[in-house]
């Protein structure tokens, strides 16, 4: 596990509760399967993604849109796969 601030990790977990069921389901799986093995840089990228509006976030997860930032795009690839 990373040396990421544990308080920040818990905040991120709560902020992964969203307004759309589809995102809740994907992010729940992401936390169960993949989140613990992310590097601090990857967690930073995920945090930036959480700032997206839900509708844009879901479009990206569903492959209807892409993110330009390569680090964020890599996280999206994980979310698309879980």
């Amino acid at each position: 596990m990373t040396a990421y601030d544990p308080i920040e990790l818990k905040r991120i977990r709560w902020r992964s509760r969203r307004g759309l069921l589809e995102l809740d389901l994907v992010l729940e799986r992401f936390f169960a399967q993949r989140f613990d093995s992310l590097s601090p840089a990857e967690i930073d990228a995920y945090k930036r993604i959480l700032d997206l509006p839900d509708t844009d976030f879901l479009d990206v997860v569903n492959g209807k849109a892409d993110l330009d930032d390569p680090e964020e795009a890599a996280i999206i690839e994980i979310l698309r796969a879980v």
């Binding site: 509760r17 969203r18 307004g19 759309l20 509006p53 839900d54």
Partner: peptide, 12 residues
Amino acid sequence: SKVFPTRSHTVA
């Protein structure tokens, strides 16, 4: 609000 106000379920 439990979540950021623009992320309430009205978004659905």
